[in-house]
Design a protein around this nucleic acid. Structure first.
Lengths: 354, 354
DNA sequence: TTGAAAGCGCTAACAA
DNA sequence: TTGTTAGCGCTTTCAA
């Protein structure tokens, strides 16, 4: 058998050894260049890069991970619901993760129960991630997993303990409060609340903000309604609420529920915003184009994702230093056409909060 | 230094060797059990599983990948837009991938140009995937990457060559055709089309379906309008179209554009559906709760994702056998309140296609 | 500034 | 049915 000199036999995929050979350096030098390590001469760097390019060399991440312990990946466990909010958050997370130089692994856990979350985390850890994000989990019991990487809880408090825990909220409490106050400012005596499903953390958060606003003004707290985020559930709530003439203002925990709510109200002969005002929650821009255009509160998905990933990456890369300060996103109330003064104060025409 | 017997020193993470030792078998047997390979006695299997459980053993995927060549991951390159359609598709992809026993890696390429797609694919390949999905790419020039794993093109034709290529459509052509025919069936002389951005494949597909329907009925083809999928762009198109009294039916390539369109039309004093009928595209359920409820065509996201992943996994796991037959999802027209006979035929009250 | 050797934790091929 | 041996392709010592 003839010796094959100069390169691996066949046309197999190039390895770092092939690059080293072509560049006339050692494999370690190739590794140094590819990892941007110091102590490499400019000349060596140039040669290595040229050789890698010529060969079409592609680094083998699995090998790197095995040798170094770092995976270059960040995972996200989400609920897998299809809504403007969750979709928007995921897109911004992907973007921030990519910008930080990491790859993204996604696992959904539709039920969001502790066992589901634990399983999702387990699979992420097995696949290999340097850290991960738990996005808007459902709170209900303890999640027990052994976690030895930093974890970012986005939009919710820690659901389990980990090496290093970062929490970034989306300001739901303040947003809910602002939405409620907007209605109160318009002159409504009190504000009803159509909340999300009981098990969700996001639901509790908004309820608390709503309560706080009511309490601060000494307004009485009407009974709560729960939907499931869908327009259909908002519609059902609207049918229940419509006959009650004392209802003049409703804060829905999601834009889609608000849309369903308005639809039911109008079908029942109640005008929006003349008889009843409705404000949503999320900020999906499409609802500026329905009748009436929906007044809502905008969730700072992009800011929260960026900020959260920044902190997570810091925790991964500089485990010994303190976490930088998390900055809060500003509260953004979007006043459109679904809110107005109550029928009893027909002339309080222009009170709005920004 | 005293010899440490029976287990690795310290409380470090357990390895397969630790499991083997505790179970009293060889590492290879542990490997067999964990991979569900044949030729393992029930007794050995039980012991290994118990040992793994006791130790809290977590398989190291990087090591497995390096040794076996299989990654257990599937990648998806998407556009990273926030819409009901893309979000819905991604959720169903994640679900199907997980059900097939794979992990999911996500890379977005917001621009969708060949260089962006190539970069996204490159990063996926480097991270390690056994196959990947290119979802609704933008067509415009050639993507040049060396791809040696199967690729699934979802909702679009192959944009580059790979070892094994699978294409699964969402039936956009038929759906667009059905939407247009529904309008024609109602008695409209012709149907205008508000298309998506020119560069998108999805745009072309829908245009062709619309054209086909028009041609089949001998209807004349009005000039095309292009939006960017947003409600705002639909609104702009609506303002442009409203003054033209000959327009009585419009097919919008997306639900959100349809919503914006309707808003502009009404603002301009044209009634929907009495004066102008509008049909959307996607099937977002929330638009059943706006006024008028939107007639639309439902994209079979779940079916397409399931079917596509099934074929992709087949191509990955059984590279030598033929691909099973791809089955088409049924066309689903959702007739709601935004379509009606044209003003000139006030009594053709009930013609609908299913 | 560079290189040689020794693994990272697993599976493949083979032998028993 | 089981175990042994030899890597997978990279990074990490450590020495030069």
């Amino acid at each position: 058998m003839a010796a094959v000199v100069g390169r691996s036999e066949g046309s197999s995929v190039p390895r770092s050894a092939d690059v080293a050979r072509l560049a006339g350096v050692s494999r370690k030098t190739v590794s140094r260049v590819l990892n941007n390590e110091p102590y490499v001469s400019a000349e060596a760097r140039t040669k290595v890069l040229a050789a890698a390019e010529e060969l079409g060399y592609r680094l083998n991440q699995a090998a790197r991970t095995l040798a170094s312990g770092r995976t270059g990946s960040i995972g996200v466990v989400a609920l897998g619901t299809v809504g403007y909010g969750t979709a928007s958050l995921l897109v911004h997370i992907e973007r921030a993760v990519r910008d930080a130089g990491y790859a993204l692994r996604v696992v959904n856990t539709p039920d969001g129960d502790p066992a589901g979350i634990a399983g999702a985390v387990e699979s992420l850890l097995e696949q290999g991630v340097d850290g991960f994000i738990v996005s808007e989990p459902i709170v209900e019991g303890d999640v027990s997993v052994r976690v030895d990487v930093p974890v970012l809880f986005l939009g919710a408090p820690p659901a389990f303990t980990a090496t290093r825990t970062v929490t970034v909220g989306v300001g739901a409490h303040e947003l809910a409060r602002a939405a409620t106050e907007h209605l109160l400012d318009l002159g409504h005596e009190t504000v009803h609340h159509l909340a999300g499903p009981r098990r969700w953390y996001a639901t509790k958060d908004r309820i608390e903000g709503w309560r706080a606003a009511l309490a601060a003004r000494g307004a009485h707290e009407p009974p709560l309604l729960n939907g499931d985020w869908s327009a259909a559930s908002g519609y059902a709530a609207g049918r229940a609420l419509a006959p009650d003439r004392s209802v003049t203002a409703i804060f829905a925990a999601g834009d889609e529920m608000a849309i369903g709510l308005i639809h039911a109200l109008r079908e029942a002969g109640r005008r929006v915003p003349e008889d009843i005002s409705v404000v949503g929650f999320d900020g999906n821009p499409v609802f500026a184009y329905v009748s009436p255009p929906l007044t809502t509160v905008r969730q700072p998905f992009e800011a929260a994702a960026r900020e959260g990933i920044r902190l997570l990456v810091h925790a991964i890369e500089k485990p010994d230093t303190d976490l930088p300060q998390a900055s809060d996103a500003p509260v953004e109330l979007v006043v459109r056409g679904s809110t107005a003064p109550p029928p009893s104060h027909p002339d309080t025409a222009d009170t709005r909060t920004a």
